[in-house]
Design a protein around this nucleic acid. Structure first.
Length: 932
RNA sequence: GGCCGAAUGGUGGAAUGGUAGACACGAAGGACUUAAAAUCCUUUGGCCAUUGAGGCUGUGUGGGUUCGAGUCCCACUUCGGCUACCA
């Protein structure tokens, strides 16, 4: 029997399915382990060879944990709502559900062929009403809660209403969009609409008038993490700022907790750092600046309170509320013109346009420490959304302020000794202060850090401001003007937003005729006939964004068919949280923040038992494409091999990597590839056409997409799995290079040949040699350590070494081969399963019924006794240079080693005629003898 | 501009501060074969030497710590990734 991957793999995939081998239930007799992949968006293009990398890595871990005796939860599902299906629907009129269902079927087929151990009985889809029921439920809970800053947790809005009725707004501790002041009497006098509007200022899910990223081409708003460099991540369309009334989530209230509990997570430092930056905590001070000849006081935020003596002007964001309050009549027109100009520029244009621009308001502020009058300007380099939208400008020590001062010829006062500000600002927070003294505060001579502390102390004491911690993290905009998303469980009663009663959930997405906005500019749901409650109140027309469905999906896998709750207490208590989460780094500032927020909210409600959803996170690298090129001689249909193109004037052309093998072009396949190459001629080197190559993104247009199905068909899923792991560390990005896959395939065949020679079954019950035992026990130790450390590439190498050694020893002992098969089961489950059954049935064909599956085997333990070497070779060095090797028994003491080294004949010639100055003996490592 | 990471043969990559280059690809040579494929064996960082050995050098650059540095520290160069008028 030769190794036949097609037969083996289809046979065991069928067996696993028929026998529900990977079905998981709660089992209190076993410790649990939850391994989760970030679920995919099923795109129309299907999986390419890069997608399964993380799935294979987590699958290996899940299978390993199972063999170690854990009850492993390893589910899979689909993030099914998304823009591509909707865009496709707009173009073709095809219902996105149909496209999505087809794509899911294709994904499932591709995944199944790779042999994953998912419990498909727990599959979820975010577009399934049974699933989004709980997305809508969570939204209602967020609407019904506010965030209490003092207790740092979510509390019922009803409590807040009671507080307002008793005390008014005075002294409340709710996180708010903006400060509001009202008395208990005023609260009681409010009508429903006014109360609703007021409470929106505090709810965790609230309707707010906020600056949003509006993308005209997509016809929808986008969250900050869906925009990069002023264009949408999906599609790359320009994005502009627009004030809109939208549903938002008060994520910013959770910023301190999101930041603090990062410490407790086993995530990579780089992704934690990315989240820290995104949350953007900065310690500084808020200070009040009085406006001259006016009652207005402006509040600014600064991290450099120490530089207050160098403030020579103030700058307001164009959208700042202060602009209208301070602008003088004479400057009103100029300011209005400037604001209009800014408004019509997109974010992208504002960034691209590095020119400094701004306009004087005509007003002056008073520096609270020096009493000097300083002009107030408006400029778009100050952002309305951060801090208070107003800054004190210190041109000597901030490069942006410096550029502005130079452009508009404003004074620059250096505050740090030795800082040369004739060419640029001095931004570093170091040095001794100068020019910083008044009759109340003297900072001269202090280090910057001391000066910051001293100033903060001073302004708090004098009532000029207060110490303040600012966060960059913004509330999440939760409305999308699209069809293919979760409908909001919201209706409007006389203009007041109301939540549907819980027993009306799920509110199902209605059918519509076209997937475009209505003529009046309303979102697509505006086309749905009868989109209203039974009482006739209109339902919300927006839908939820992509991250809504992915924020709590890990909980649903614990209890996917529960009709009464998101997850039962029993299931949540058992499975707790994800122990290992595998996915790409691109979700660092989106999904991984929202999901943590969502989970913390549910935790506050007592619905989940863990504060954090994902205990350990591993980020797999991206698989890039490796493109191949052919070189056409200009104006001909002749192609020259890469090594010979020096003498010709050529153009390089991408060629389909699937007709190239080891960078050698299949010239016949090339002629068939496209009609224009049918009569192509070739200039060969050594009878072959050698292609050039480059690493690029994997994409259709580069002809470098490799489909896993093709690899599985040709080499088998086990080879694909082993090869993807062998390519390099899981965390590292690397190009897909099919060169080299033969090596892994050869390894499987070699392994096979330990069991079968033709039809003959080779395995026997003989006592294995010490070398064979040592080889396999070394492997057990190595693979166990490697899996725990996620170092799969070195594991595969270790398998190769072991199989080579055992082949050379001609060992076919069951005692050696059985653990080898179990070790291999996580990596190459099909061939391991086949051999496991063959071992049980002594190589007979009907092996399938002969034994339990390898999935129920026990992970082997290594025996240190077999690993002990007879002798250890220690390098002996003189004056740091290795001169010879000394063999000693493993348990030799330090003193004995020293004696042996000095007495060895090799040592004599290095010691001769010299004095020994120092001897260093590190047992099992080194002997170093210093002579002179 | 900020933050993070990386730099080792022709290639992908190994190496708890202790014999650098595991393992694999590719390449060269050989065995088997009518031939090819498959398989197996040998060699494979560079330089010098070779009858038998052997020797020198070598992990981006320059310093440092150490008996000993690819690994730790400082500075620099280059390349990736993320992020960005965040005051």
């Amino acid at each position: 029997m030769d190794y036949n991957h097609r037969k083996i793999e289809s046979r065991w995939q069928q067996y696993w399915k028929d026998n529900k081998v990977y079905h998981t239930e709660i089992d209190h007799g076993k410790p649990k382990f939850y391994v989760l992949d970030m679920f995919p968006y099923p795109s129309g293009a299907g999986l390419h060879v890069g997608h399964p990398l993380g799935y294979i890595a987590s699958d290996i871990y899940a299978r390993y944990k199972r063999l170690k005796g854990f009850n492993v939860l390893h589910p899979m599902g689909y993030d099914a709502y998304g823009l591509p299906a909707e865009q496709y629907a707009i173009q073709t009129g095809q219902h996105p559900e149909k496209t999505t269902t087809e794509n899911i079927a294709r994904y499932r087929g591709q995944l199944d062929r790779i042999g994953f151990c998912y419990d498909w009985d727990r599959e979820i889809r975010t577009c399934d009403p049974e699933y989004y029921h709980w997305t809508q439920w969570a939204f209602i809970e967020m609407f019904n809660h506010y965030f209490d800053v003092k207790q740092q947790k979510a509390m019922p809005v009803a409590d807040l209403e009671a507080y307002f009725a008793a005390n008014g707004s005075e002294g409340h501790t709710a996180a708010e969009s903006k400060p509001l002041k009202f008395t208990a009497g005023e609260w009681k006098a409010m009508d429903d609409k006014q109360r609703s509007d007021t409470l929106m200022n505090y709810r965790i899910a609230y309707l707010g008038n906020t600056m949003v990223n509006w993308c005209p081409q997509l016809g929808t708003v986008l969250a900050n993490d869906e925009v990069s460099e002023g264009v949408s991540i999906r599609g790359g369309y320009p994005v502009e700022q627009k004030l809109m009334y939208q549903w938002c989530l008060r994520v910013s209230a959770y910023a301190p907790r999101l930041l603090d509990s990062l410490e407790s997570l086993e995530w990579s430092d780089s992704i934690k750092e990315t989240q820290r930056n995104w949350i953007g905590r900065s310690e500084g001070a808020e200070m009040q600046f009085k406006v001259a000849d006016s009652d207005v006081e402006m509040t600014i935020f600064t991290t450099r309170a120490d530089t207050v003596f160098g403030v020579t002007f103030m700058v307001l964001a164009p959208e700042s509320k202060y602009v209208d309050m301070v602008t003088t009549p004479g400057q009103r027109q100029a300011v209005e013109d400037y604001r209009n100009e800014i408004k019509h520029k997109t974010e992208r244009e504002r960034i691209a346009d590095k020119k400094v621009s701004g306009v004087f308001t005509g007003a002056y502020a008073v520096n609270p420490l020096t009493g000097k009058r300083i002009p107030i300007w408006v400029s778009d380099y100050v952002l309305a959304g951060y801090g208070t939208g107003a800054i004190m400008a210190v041109p000597a020590h901030d490069s942006r302020d410096y550029a502005f001062a130079r452009k508009f010829d404003l004074p620059v006062i250096p505050l740090i000794e030795g800082a040369d500000v004739s060419e640029g600002s001095f931004d570093a927070k170091e040095g001794k202060m100068i020019n910083s003294a008044s009759d109340k505060l003297d900072l001269n001579g202090l280090e910057v850090k001391e000066a910051i502390a001293r100033t903060k102390e001073f302004i708090e004491k004098e009532g000029l401001g207060r110490v303040k911690v600012n966060y960059r993290l913004r509330d999440a905009i939760f409305s999308r003007q699209r069809y293919w998303g979760e409908p909001f469980p919201v209706y409007y009663k006389d203009g007041v937003p109301m939540m549907l009663p819980l027993d009306k959930l799920p509110l199902q997405l209605p059918e519509i005729d076209k997937y475009l906005p209505t003529e009046s500019g309303e979102p697509p749901l505006g086309r749905a006939a009868g989109w209203q409650t039974e009482e006739g109140y209109p339902l919300e027309l927006n839908t939820m964004p992509g991250f809504a469905g992915s924020s709590a999906y890990y909980l649903r896998y614990m209890d996917p068919r529960n009709h009464d709750e998101l997850v039962s207490k029993e299931a949540n208590d058992y499975w707790q949280q994800v122990d290992l989460y595998v996915g790409g780094t691109e979700h660092a500032t989106g999904h991984l923040i929202y999901s943590r927020f969502w989970n913390k909210f549910l935790y506050d409600l007592g619905k989940v038992c863990k504060d954090e959803p994902y205990r350990k996170l591993v980020n797999q690298g991206m698989i890039q494409g490796r493109s191949n090129f052919v070189y056409r001689i200009k104006d001909t249909n002749t192609f020259v091999s890469a090594g010979l193109r020096g003498g010709y004037d050529t153009t390089s052309i991408h060629v389909d990597v699937n007709i190239v093998s080891n960078d050698r072009l299949d010239t016949e396949a090339f002629r068939r590839w496209r009609p224009e190459y049918a009569d192509a001629e070739f200039v060969l080197e050594n009878g072959e056409y050698v292609c050039g190559w480059a690493v690029e993104k994997m994409s259709k247009s580069m002809f470098n997409v490799v489909n896993p199905d093709d690899i599985v068909e040709r080499y088998g899923a086990d080879t694909l799995r082993l090869y993807e792991m062998f390519l390099g560390p899981v965390e590292q990005s690397k190009p897909w290079d099919t060169n080299g896959i033969d090596g892994v395939n050869r390894f499987i065949k070699k392994l096979w040949n330990l069991f079968y020679k033709g039809e003959k079954w080779l395995v026997d019950d003989s006592k294995p040699s010490r070398e064979a035992l040592k080889s396999v026990h070394t492997l057990i130790k190595k693979v166990t350590a490697d899996i725990e450390a996620f170092s799969y590439n070195t594991s595969v190498a270790a398998f190769m070494i072991c199989v080579n050694e055992i082949s050379k020893l001609d060992c076919h002992s069951r005692e050696v081969l059985t653990p080898l098969v179990v070790l291999l089961a996580p990596f190459a489950p099909h061939v391991a399963e086949e051999l496991w059954h063959a071992l049980a049935a002594d190589g007979k064909e009907d092996a399938a019924d002969a034994a339990s599956t390898v999935c129920d085997a026990q992970w082997p333990e290594w025996n240190e006794e077999y690993l002990k070497a007879d002798a250890i070779n220690l390098p002996v060095s003189f004056n740091g240079k290795t001169r010879f090797m000394l063999s000693v028994a493993p348990e030799t003491s330090k003193e004995e080693i020293e004696k042996l080294a000095l007495e060895s004949p090799d040592a004599a010639k290095w010691i001769e005629g010299k004095t020994i100055r120092k001897i260093i003996v590190v047992p099992n490592k080194i002997i170093n003898i210093v002579v002179g």
